[in-house]
């Protein structure tokens, strides 16, 4: 029998697959987080310009990456769902949104914590901070739209459309904010001023970035399992599954 990836486009088979994958990603995320934090706090040297405060970078950068990356994945699933009308795609983008919003919020928060010792202010209207804030607003808007529509089919498709419009608009927003920022304040402090990071710092950051990936995958899969159960509750296989418990 040929292995077919399309088999897992059915919520029933995907439910089982997700169940098998979750422990791997969850444990992977846990172990990598511990490892990454050890590198970050004990092995990475103190930065000669920024002192100890720079260590926020180890959380801040992975969170900021993930907040943007999850939005792209959501846009991908939305496009797939609208094009081929696959149920699972909409469930995936729905399961990803809260994780993306959490990462966006985390990147704003750690950005503020980092900004205070570095720039002397909790908040600077820097291009990156501002566009992360707008990305966070987009996540909130999408989740608000989902929760406002009771009809499932309409809510899925309306949300997907909004995500895609946002995906077209995000680069434009980023460049307009960047341009606005340089016009109003002159070039601001760049986050990545040091041209070469110590390689151990880079390794720590990458380990934590992978940990953030694993965490995002594990939470999204857990959430998608819940959504599958909720939506397929009238089917036979879910009834059988629930009887077993």
């Amino acid at each position: 029998m040929a292995f077919s990836i399309y088999k897992y486009a059915s919520p029933m088979t995907f439910y089982g697959l997700a169940g098998k994958l979750i422990p791997w990603f969850a444990w992977g995320a846990g172990i990598l987080t511990v490892l990454g934090l050890y590198i970050a706090f004990f092995m990475a040297p103190t930065d000669f310009q920024q002192g100890e405060a720079y260590r926020v970078i180890f959380i801040h950068v992975p969170a900021a990456w993930m907040s943007m990356f999850i939005y792209i994945i959501m846009a991908f699933w939305s496009a797939v769902g609208l094009a081929w009308n696959t149920r699972l795609s909409f469930m995936m983008s729905r399961a990803l949104a809260p994780t993306g919003a959490v990462f966006a919020f985390l990147s704003l928060w750690t950005g503020a914590l980092w900004g205070k010792p570095m720039w002397g202010a909790w908040w600077v209207w820097d291009a990156r901070l501002t566009s992360s804030l707008i990305l966070f607003f987009l996540y909130v808007g999408i989740m608000a739209l989902w929760s406002a529509i009771d009809d499932r089919r309409r809510s899925d498709r309306a949300g997907a459309l909004l995500i895609l419009v946002g995906a077209i608009n995000v680069p434009i927003i980023y460049f307009s904010v960047k341009w606005w920022n340089t016009l109003h304040q002159g070039a601001s402090v760049s986050l990545m001023k040091s041209p070469s990071m110590a390689s151990i710092m880079l390794i720590g950051m990458l380990v934590l970035a992978i940990a953030a990936w694993f965490y995002a995958i594990a939470t999204a899969l857990t959430r998608v399992r819940g959504i599958i159960l909720e939506r397929e509750r009238q089917t036979e296989w879910v009834k059988e599954l629930l009887e077993k418990i």
Partner: peptide, 10 residues
């Protein structure tokens, strides 16, 4: 307002 205001930014 919540949906569209961020898109108006540019």
């Amino acid at each position: 307002t919540l949906l569209i205001l961020p898109l108006y930014v540019p």
